[in-house]
Computed example of a mutant assay.
Amino acid sequence: MKIVRTTYLSLGTNLGDKIQNLQQAVNLINDYIGHVQRISSVYSSPSWGFEGKDFYNICIEISSSLNPEKMIQKVLDIEHQLGRDRNPDGGYKDRIIDIDILLFDDEIIFYNDLKVPHPEMLKRKFVLVPLTEIAPNIIHPIAKKTILICLQQCLDSGHIEKTEIKLKRPISLVEKYNYIAIEGNIGSGKTSLANKIGDDFNAKLVLERFADNPFLPKFYADEERYAFPLEMSFLADRYHQLTDDLAQFDLFKNFIVSDYYIFKSLIFAQITLPKEEYNLYRKMFDIMYKEISKPDVYVFLYQNTDRLIENIKKRGREYEQNIQPEYLDKIHKGYSSFIKSEKALNTLVIDVSELDFVSNDSDYHKVLKQILEYNGNGHQ
């Protein structure tokens, strides 16, 4: 589990559409650095240290698991993405966006060019005024005084004016959802995505157990004879795990992510069981299903068969290497039929065939964005 720290940032702009600049920066910080907890009002002030256009300034509070080195790199990336052209001689000039790390918990950091607390923050009213608005009682780790006291003792006589402009605070998965279920075919990456989301958002993870099933080797030796007891044992285990885990929220984890849903049992049973046994199985399933909590959103990761085969080979599980494309196609058809027929679930289908959300941070955030922006009215 990652350690999440509270960090305060200062944002300023004096070029172009200043409100759009600030809002885009806040959104990108929320996507790539940490969840934005608070945003100050927007303040207007003259340029500081040079002759230029007036600035709009804000301070924000974020919770982030990034270490200081990674955080400053992400800050620079966001500034570059928004068009920041840094002055090579280090002097002040007009800029489309400026993002400074003010405080990183109560730590004192001197790392290359990164200094936290920001060495100039106590001299700047355009920093202290918005920071006091959202964190008046935070202790400055060097001055050993609250930010409010630091503002009262600040010698900066520059004019700063509070505007009526309000920026929109981005919401996170934790705020929108209590329970997300992630499904997909074999090799689609559902467990990898669940682990990444669980780690990043400190979620309670419900992962399918891969403990030895006593019927599994018998099933491989005689599928016709042992398919029914195998599927019933899987159903019982999944039912037991979901009812237990979903009923017992951790004290500090009100957000749950699972890498399967109980309907997985039904889909695989359709493939392995003859009609009569499947009908009996379905009756047992329907009884159990009534007791299972429904996810706020059911995410299905679609990958084409060729990509699934590639992923299966790449992860190298010996017992999966003989899986045939035809079998994966049957599973996909089963999921497709289920998704079309099951109207009670908020189902979001995401095509990840061309994405690598495990290794590519940008692809991962594309997936997160689709989940976050899903409105429950259809598939994206």
Results as ranks from 00 to 15, higher is better:
Ile292Phe: 04
Lys93Pro: 02
Leu207Tyr: 01
Leu82Ile: 05
Asn195Cys: 04
Phe255Gly: 01
Ile39Pro: 00
Ile331Thr: 08
Asn202Met: 04
Asp286Met: 04
Asp200Met: 14
Asn304Gln: 09
Glu276Arg: 11
Ile371His: 11
Lys314Pro: 01
Pro274Asp: 15
Cys154His: 14
Ser359Thr: 10
Gln81Trp: 04
Asp306Pro: 04
Lys166Gly: 00
Arg5Gln: 09
Phe210Tyr: 14
Leu372Lys: 09
Phe285His: 08
Asp306Tyr: 07
Ile33Glu: 00
Lys333Arg: 15
Lys196Phe: 12
Ile19Gln: 00
Glu79Lys: 09
Pro46Glu: 08
Ile267Ala: 07
His332Asp: 15
Glu79Ser: 09
His35Tyr: 13
Ile99Ser: 02
Glu161Ala: 02
Pro130Ala: 03
Ile197Leu: 06
Asp250Gln: 14
Gln152Ala: 07
Val116Met: 03
Phe249Ile: 13
Lys93Asp: 10
Ile39His: 00
Arg95Ser: 03
Gln324Tyr: 10
Pro295Tyr: 02
Asp286Gly: 01
Ile138Thr: 11
Asp329Asn: 15
Tyr226Pro: 12
Lys333Cys: 11
Asp113Ala: 07
Leu148Cys: 10
Phe357Leu: 09
Asn30Thr: 04
Met1Trp: 05
Asn279Gly: 04
Thr305Arg: 07
Asn137Asp: 15
Asp77Pro: 01
Gln152Ile: 07
Glu164Pro: 01
Ile312Tyr: 07
Ile101Met: 04
Met288Cys: 14
His35Ile: 13
Val127Glu: 00
Arg282Ile: 06
Cys154Phe: 10
His159Asp: 15
Glu373Arg: 08
Asp98Leu: 05
Ser47Thr: 11
Arg95Glu: 04
